[in-house]
């Protein structure tokens, strides 16, 4: 994922900064507990296509 693009990306719902998870190919919004998928290199930034993060995943993010 392009660095410059990552700098301007935000959650489409709350507009907060996103965390890029390269291995999972996901963009995470901690505030909304959502993971937006990157499919074939194209971010899919729609709420309907986002995955709800589990509590365990949220804890893991907080401990990082």
């Amino acid at each position: 994922m392009d660095k410059k693009l990552l700098e301007i990306l935000a959650c489409p719902l709350c507009k907060s900064t996103l965390i890029y998870r390269q291995n999972e190919q996901e963009l995470i919004c901690k505030a909304d507990h959502l993971a937006f998928p990157i499919r074939d290199g194209i971010p899919v930034m729609l709420e309907d296509d986002a995955r709800q993060l589990t509590n365990e995943e949220m804890d893991a993010l907080d401990n990082k």
Binding site: K15, L46, E47, D49
Partner: peptide, 17 residues
């Protein structure tokens, strides 16, 4: 060129981008 799936009324970008 960066292509993204997004609604143009609720975009995934910071202010003043």
């Amino acid at each position: 060129t960066d292509f993204q799936v997004s609604d143009f009324c609720a975009t995934p970008f910071q202010d003043e981008s």
